[in-house]
Computed example of a mutant assay.
Amino acid sequence: MKLSVVITCFNAWEHVAQSLSYLTQNDNANIISEIILIDDASTVLPNIPFDKYDHLQLVRNTQNMGYVASVNKGCKIASGDLILLLDADAYVLSSLNDLVLVFQAKPSLGLANFTVVNQWGQSSGKMEPAPGLLSIILGQKLEAKWRHYFKGSEKSACYYSFAIAFRKTVFEELEGFDESFDFLDADIDFSIRFHQSQKWDSENISSILIQHDGGGSPQSTSKRVIRFYYNRIRLLKKNNNKWLVKVAIVLAWIRLVIEYFILKWGVKGNSEAVRIDKINGRKYLIKNLLYQL
């Protein structure tokens, strides 16, 4: 079984250099057949001796395609039976031997994730239950608290794409990641469609350790919240009754109005800059969210 590693990058060369170093250190058995690095039209030149890495194929996009399209491009180029998809800031800290062995031993296994830690060695998020309408009715923080007490089944969990492995045939059958998402929720959508196919199994290969630093795409709180709502609504419309989604959008809009006034006239705990940023995010969503009906 051939293993292809796909990494995407936009101006994250320092992370890419570390990722390549870790991959080399932990591939003593020469399991990796190729590393495909998609440079999404970076504006910063790399300072990496690419020629020292065997089987590395650097592919430069002539214009910025975005994360999802770059992932699809890399996976289509990959010649391996098995694809390991990594963010630039996701580092393989253990041998990859088990990755190939587990997939070889289990022909029905189509998708896998791993043990994940942050830069301080603490356990970090790698998946979430398939999101429902509550994710926009309650918002991210309230829904996270809800999920803490009402956890879904791990068998249908949605894996985050910063470090996952899947068969090339699975990628082809699902026709890749949906490029209508900018990057948020594209992996959730991929997992949902994977489970809906009812053809393959998924599994956590706990012996493989990944460090994910995160924060590779810094953005303000308001921009993150706005992107969350637009991507999540798109995801929910694909997988739910459209009228129920419309009701959820209206309820979310009412909550955002309440949050806006609380932030504007009530809560003073945040720094002033953070508070203003949150107010502006809610203000934008209040003006525009109902256009999603």
Rank of each mutant, 00 (worst) to 15 (best):
S161Q: 08
I210F: 03
R227T: 15
K283R: 12
Q63N: 14
N11H: 07
F183D: 09
G266A: 01
A186H: 05
G214Y: 00
S191W: 09
I164C: 07
S220Q: 09
D40L: 04
L263D: 04
F50D: 11
D213F: 02
R147V: 15
S4I: 01
Q122C: 04
I83M: 03
K242A: 14
E14H: 09
L251Q: 10
W253H: 15
L174K: 03
F162N: 04
F10Y: 15
K278H: 02
L134Q: 03
G152Y: 11
L82M: 07
I192L: 14
W13Y: 13
S207A: 15
G121Y: 03
Q292H: 07
V257P: 00
F10D: 01
E14G: 14
S123Q: 07
K106N: 15
A88G: 09
G80D: 07
L263K: 00
M1V: 07
R224P: 00
L235S: 13
K242F: 06
K246M: 09
A186Y: 11
I7H: 06
W253K: 06
N240D: 12
A17N: 13
I205H: 08
I164Q: 06
L133Q: 04
S156C: 09
F103A: 10
L236D: 03
T115F: 09
G216S: 09
H195A: 15
P218D: 03
L111C: 02
V100K: 08
I192V: 15
V116Y: 04
I32Q: 01
S19Q: 12
V245W: 03
K141C: 05
D98R: 15
K268E: 00
K237M: 11
F171K: 05
I32W: 02
P129W: 03
T8C: 11
V225H: 06
A17W: 12
V274M: 02
D201R: 14
K126Y: 08
K73H: 12
Y284K: 04
V68H: 01
I188D: 10
L236G: 10
V92M: 05
P107N: 05
I35V: 12
L93R: 10
E203N: 06
G266V: 03
A41W: 08
G176V: 00
K126N: 07
A112D: 02
N239P: 01
E272S: 06
S156A: 13
K264E: 05
Y160T: 08
K73V: 01
A165P: 10
V117F: 08
I249N: 03
G152P: 12
S33Y: 05
V71M: 12
F50W: 13
S21D: 14
L45C: 08
K155I: 11
G216W: 07
A144D: 12
Q18K: 14
D54P: 11
W253N: 09
V92G: 02
V6H: 04
L99R: 07
D51E: 15
R147F: 06
L209E: 07
I205V: 11
D87K: 06
G80N: 11
T221G: 10
V59Y: 10
E34T: 09
S124D: 01
S124I: 00
